[in-house]
Design a protein around this nucleic acid. Structure first.
Lengths: 301, 301
DNA sequence: CGCATTCTCTGACTATAGTCAGAGAATCGT
DNA sequence: ACGATTCTCTGACTATAGTCAGAGAATGCG
């Protein structure tokens, strides 16, 4: 563990030094770095100011000033959104798009300057290692937390989940009230809903509810396609089990459709055993159960 | 190439975001980041202010102010160097060392927070990929440039080279004037000396000199132990060949000792062929030659 | 309708990270 | 010995990156 921690630190130092310095040299030469980043973030299509604020994590006053500055330079314009007059939308002008292209070219040059001194074989290996680091840092940035009641993102995850069921079940899918959980129905002590977030975006969802004394049920496990294969499902499931234990649940059940092969694999490898049908869900072909035991390993996230 | 460049850019964005934000959250909470970095850089033993300036790349006025600030906080003291009264040396006080330990602990926590959400297998792979990226970024940061006449670092490289020969040759080594190049002897048009630098430190050296019309000789190729295996020797050699071509040299020769196995391997794989003894160097057992042809690939360094 | 909330903006302020010119002390080179 | 150079420091200045409070317009909700 110690050696791993030291490697992470050495990596962080090496990379932020190299790229931080280059960023300033390449991108920040002509204008403040914050303005350059904002140009990147607005990008080619109109973007709401509130989204910019969320994505860049900036103070609203500061962002507003940056927008005014770019506006004065003729690089972008802002206008009110059609459907909501409070929201302002920023859009690059022709000159702004040209400037963005220029920044992109600089950014490419920066990347090339990193690859250039290397042999083709070294460059290939560097790129592969970078992809791996990026993928795993993404996995590590995903935080799992309880869904707040009335959480729009959580509701949105459920919607995407249902849509996906509809497209994957050969027979189609139409959610029935009986098998659909609302967050409200879980409150206050009937269950728990968790949301996985990546940089503010909800990228995973899962819920557990009590269905009998000492017995719980996992519902609506879903992971956004773009973060599949990063272990988010496994982490969500582990956290739901932790929550279930906290609710004095000893046995967890769940049902699933035969076409959801990744889910079937996850449940099996997480220790769930097939049991006979225990409910009347018309879309389920498999039913699982796991007896929870006191966990040795503490929760991780 | 395009895909590789995009991967490098995506990586840079992901990593600087993740670690930049964390750095500020963890290390910069109690004091300006520049001060924290300075504490790290001074470290456990006394360090000359000029070295701090070089390593951190700071303006002398700014650094001086940072030092005064840390001095006021009782974290370090500065005093004049014994052998040179102009040079000031900074050293952490007891309180400064405590603070450094604290910063180290925070830095460790930061690293752990990256690893914590991952499965053991994912963590293992992340650390391995980080090590690879760090290694190759280090390789890519090494710049090869002509040695300025009177360059202390270049002279120092030659000294280390001789020391290493002394420790590796079974018969020992004592440089003879006849086979030792000084930079001055290469000036102005008799040859060229190149230095490889990593963040200001000289980590490699090599020279080429004209020994007959159309004929050159590679001398004093040396790569610092800490950057071996990164392809620096190969790059140095390629650049020396480029320089030789620029000097209208068509045939390059070199001699080497039987115990320098890496060098022998490098010369062979770079297209050098064994030839009979062409000089009276008492320490040489192998002589090589390469006929230079117009290079298809442009220089890369 | 009217009150609470959301969203953006402005003004006033602060902290951080420098840059630049020049002074003063020490040392180097000849 | 002495002029050039090196090294550090101070004072004065600027740019960047914010923070915070509050105003004003638009919308949501009962």
């Amino acid at each position: 563990m110690r050696a791993e921690v030291l490697q992470v630190r050495a990596f962080s130092r090496a990379v932020t030094r190299r790229f931080g310095v280059l960023d300033e040299q390449y991108l920040g030469r002509r204008r403040p770095l914050a303005e350059a980043r904002l140009l990147f973030e607005v990008g080619m299509h109109a973007t709401a100011v509130r989204d910019l604020r969320a994505r860049l994590g900036l103070d609203s006053g500061f962002l507003s000033r940056l927008l005014r500055s770019l506006e004065r330079q003729g690089l972008l314009v802002t206008e009110s959104a059609r459907d909501d007059g409070r929201i302002r939308v920023a859009r690059l002008t022709r000159a702004g798009r040209r400037e963005l292209h220029h920044l992109n070219a600089l950014s490419d040059a920066l990347a090339r300057s990193v690859l250039a001194p290397l042999s083709p074989e070294q460059a290939r290996r560097l790129v592969a290692a970078m992809a791996e680091v990026e993928r795993l840092l993404c996995a590590s940035s995903i935080a799992i937390a309880p869904a707040q009641p009335g959480d729009q993102d959580a509701a949105n995850c459920r919607r995407q989940y249902f849509q996906e069921l509809g497209s994957r079940f050969p027979e189609g899918f139409r959610p029935t009230a009986a098998h659909t959980l609302t967050l409200r129905r879980l409150e206050p002590r009937a269950g728990r809903a968790l949301v996985a977030r990546l940089a503010g975006d909800a990228v995973g969802f899962g819920a557990v509810r009590r269905i009998a004394p000492g017995m719980g049920e996992i519902k609506h496990m879903w992971v956004a396609p773009r973060v599949r294969g990063l272990g988010v499902g496994r982490r969500l499931l582990a956290e739901l089990e932790r929550a279930a234990r906290g609710m004095r649940v000893r046995v967890l059940r769940l049902d699933t459709h035969a076409s959801l092969t990744e889910a079937l694999g996850l449940y099996r490898s997480a220790g769930y055993r097939k049991i006979p049908r225990y409910n009347d869900n018309p879309y389920a072909q498999h039913w699982f159960e796991k007896v929870l035991v006191a966990s040795v390993r503490p929760g991780r996230g």
